[in-house]
């Protein structure tokens, strides 16, 4: 069931680069990452690509395939017709290092800016009690594999380098939402800091991030919109603000 695939792979570095045409064999059931590896082993020994688990669990092989941010290990070649040229390019929102590998250090800098989880000081190891239904809200966001496809597609930074300084991006909005909804976290005002320090207000809910998420996390509906709504509520209602502060510790059964 072999077929001949026509690829256009972007090759270059931070200064210069171009699409190169490649013809390579493919088999049904293979994914784009298999094809890239075949090109690497037979035609371009120094073609740079990041990958690890090849099972959609580590989020390393993020790239753009026919312009769409995708994991190469989860993209079947059968999705493309016999005559279709598959164009493979590096993530556009981040600086290229070489070929399909980009510098994603922006995301690690943003991770450092989100205040860590704070455990209740009086709660000893082993004593935590939480309802399954309460942990599930945060667990949805903890499914994130940090592929940064949501960051790549988000137009707030994709085409606006200048916004990177003040905008954490969808990956870190779900991180903040996860901690905000964590039944035990004691740090207050996470929603407010999402707005004041991490640029939540710049998001205008086009849901592009949700569309590309390989883990199908409902980034916009379950994290961003609820935080935006509550920021607005709390901002204009002092009683609600007080309630939100007290509610937090109620999660401890």
């Amino acid at each position: 069931m072999a077929r001949t695939l026509k690829l256009r792979i972007w090759r270059g570095n931070d200064e210069d680069g171009a699409l190169q045409d490649v013809t390579v064999e493919g088999n049904n059931g293979e994914v784009v990452l298999d094809i890239i590896h075949r090109v690497q082993a037979t035609q371009m020994g120094d073609l740079a690509v990041r990958w690890n688990c090849k099972a959609g669990k580590c989020g390393s092989c993020s790239m753009e395939i026919n312009g769409k941010p995708r994991l190469a290990c989860m993209t079947q070649i059968s999705a493309y017709g016999d005559d279709e040229v598959i164009t493979i390019t590096p993530l556009r929102a981040f600086p290229v290092i070489k070929d399909l590998v980009t510098d994603v250090s922006f995301n690690y800098k943003k991770a450092l800016e989100v205040r860590a989880y704070e455990h209740p000081v009086d709660l000893k190891p082993g004593e935590a009690r939480m309802e399954q239904v309460d942990v599930e809200r945060s667990q949805e966001f903890r499914k994130c594999i940090e592929c940064f496809l949501c960051q790549d597609t988000c137009h707030v930074i994709r085409d606006h380098e200048e916004n990177k300084k003040s905008f954490a991006g969808p990956r870190f909005f779900i991180r903040i939402a996860e901690l905000d909804m964590h039944p035990l976290d004691t740090l207050r005002n996470r929603k407010q800091t999402a707005q004041s320090e991490h640029g939540l207000g710049m998001c205008n809910i086009t849901k592009c991030c949700t569309e590309v998420c390989p883990e199908h996390i409902r980034i916009t509906d379950n994290a961003i919109i609820p935080m935006k709504e509550r920021v607005v509520d709390v901002k204009y209602d002092p009683l609600r603000w007080l309630g939100s502060v007290i509610r937090k510790r109620d999660g401890i059964l």
């Binding site: 989880y117 455990h119 190891p125 009690r129 939480m130 942990v135 667990q139 903890r142 976290d185």
Partner: peptide, 24 residues
């Protein structure tokens, strides 16, 4: 091993729960 798992919880890990609210 149990201490190491409970320690993860103090660092923010969210394991699945039993009906009593303990780690499943």
């Amino acid at each position: 091993a149990p201490d190491r798992i409970w320690e993860l919880e103090t660092w923010g890990a969210l394991f699945d729960r039993t009906k009593e609210g303990k780690i499943s």
